[in-house]
Amino acid sequence: MNKILLRAAVLLLLTLLAGCAAGTVGNAGGSPGAEAGGSPGGAEAAIGLAVGQTAPDFTLTLNGGGEVTLSQLRGQPVFLNLFTTWCPPCREEIPALQKIYEEYGDRVSIIGVSVTESADVVAEFIAASGVGYPVALDPDGIVAADYDVQFIPQSWVLDSDGVIADYIPGGTDEAGILAALAGVLP
């Protein structure tokens, strides 16, 4: 085969190889992390990501200040929406979430979690979008890893004991949210 072609091809391939080699050395995340500490004992369901298991706990900074700890929200059902600001279906379901928050906010905790995004990007977005419900920041992707998040959006419905009652992969709308909440709303 002609030398020039061979050299060009080898050069391009080496570049690829270098990139891949550098890549395979470090991969963070992608592993299902369902072991978030031990349960405090008693009759609590096992911690995991399946319906009927207790959702993994987390503590995150809220956009606008303050913190939120999932386990402290028990006593009320929780609608947990994992999203990013750049994902079109995530943005499309925000008005529905806002509406549900306004109508049912006293009976269910609506929490948005922005995964792998920096605080300023989220702050900018929230300010422009008119979101009223609390949005937590997960810039390091810890919650993303604990919940084995490979795609967004996705929503988790927890009952008042923090046990997973339903799961919505992908985007949803008002009807979808209400249907998912039907089982846990008092």
Binding site: T84, P89, T116
Partner: peptide, 9 residues
């Protein structure tokens, strides 16, 4: 960012 999280749609 866009390359590590799947946006299904």
């Amino acid at each position: 960012q866009k390359a590590v999280l799947l946006c299904l749609e």
